[in-house]
Design a protein around this nucleic acid. Structure first.
Lengths: 206, 206
DNA sequence: AATAAAAGTAATTAATTACTTACTTTTAAA
DNA sequence: TTTAAAAGTAAGTAATTAATTACTTTTATT
């Protein structure tokens, strides 16, 4: 019966991720995926009910990976500002390794009404914002961050800035150093967080 | 000869903008546009060489309108912080009135390689970033903003945050108050800008 | 070895849709 | 009023592509 389904499914998912990174979402037909995997087009439908189910699996694979890379950092022992810096760094690193992520994020398939993909991204964003909120609140409680405004709004700023940066990266054909740019912006909201804190920390680019 | 071309062209552009706002980019076929305008599908091609040329005109129309709304504010007499606030407010207002903008911004048609649309957006973003940079530099020179870091990086933060917010708005089906959310975030980078301004200690620039 | 379930395929289908063609109608100007 | 150019149209065409069908091959289990 050929390769076991689970294995083949992952092959299809990973091939699709590679193809998305190379060419974007729209151009990736089931035929193109099949060619890359090295099977017939019809075989794709033995493993996924529809083309959209492939992309659903792709998005779950990517977000799963990202959470696995980032989640332990939220719970680390380091102080809140260091944790925040590390997480942002890790997210940028992940995105820069997976162009497929912005490609899917900025596809109209995702943004179109009642898309399953959109639901997944909503969940991921909600989870991320929640985690950032806690982290920042933590920093406020422990006196690392100034607590004159809402931790949640600050978390939204972090998430929005990340996404805006990905957008700019995509628009500029991925030809600036994502991590460097992202870190530079980080310096700014760090300032907003630390503002009025009675310590003259200077923020340096890394 | 029916309606003069210029008039019909604008009808097509505006109908397409409405349709994009309602249904996104992908679903808008030349047939759908023709139906909305009330002409035959073939007529579209009497006024635009290809479907993509329609979307090009749409994007130019939208960005032209946005610049017209925002450009005078860059040059107003008000102090830099007030100008910044007003411009961001205006941009958010514009976007909230034109869902078509995020819809086009997050379409893979735009993000795909060698897309004319992408080029237009690149230009608009470059122009915006440039204008923000000058505004912020202006604020630094006049002492309204602390000038410990690069005005250009700060400008990028403003633009990225705007785009990230649009992204979040789109992902959440446009059902939060864009302007309120945006203004809340504005409060934060304002803090970064004003931070340490009246403070006794002064941090050297980078 | 027998066999049933799963994996695989070639060929086809059905739907979609940008764009063209060949023709008619409208309109502004000579 | 003539006329030529532009606007308009109905009816295609050709290309694309997700999904199905009807069939064959592989493989794990008994």
């Amino acid at each position: 019966m050929g390769k076991p389904s689970e294995q083949r499914q992952e092959e299809i998912v990973i091939s699709t991720i590679d193809l998305c990174a190379e060419q974007g979402v729209n151009k990736i037909t089931t035929q193109v995926i099949a060619d890359r995997v090295g099977v017939a087009q019809a075989t794709i439908f033995k493993h996924f009910k529809t083309r959209d189910h492939v992309f659903e699996a792709v998005l779950r694979w990517l977000s799963g990976r990202m959470f696995k890379a980032v989640e332990p950092m939220f719970k680390s022992e380091a102080s809140a500002d260091v944790r925040l810096q590390n997480i942002i760094c890790k997210q940028l690193e992940f995105a820069s390794k997976h162009k497929a992520l912005p490609r899917i994020l900025f596809s109209d398939r995702l943004h179109s009404d009642s898309s399953v993909l959109k639901g997944i991204v909503q969940q991921v964003m909600a989870r991320m914002t929640e985690a950032f909120t806690q982290l920042i609140q933590d920093g406020m409680d422990s006196g690392v961050f100034a607590n004159q405004q809402s931790a949640q709004v600050m978390a939204k700023l972090v998430v929005s800035t990340m996404q805006g940066t990905l957008m700019r990266w995509s628009i500029h054909d991925y030809n600036f150093e994502l991590q460097a740019e992202g870190q530079a912006l980080y310096g700014y909201y760090m300032q907003a967080l630390l503002a009025n804190n009675p310590a003259p920390w200077s923020i340096e680019d890394k």
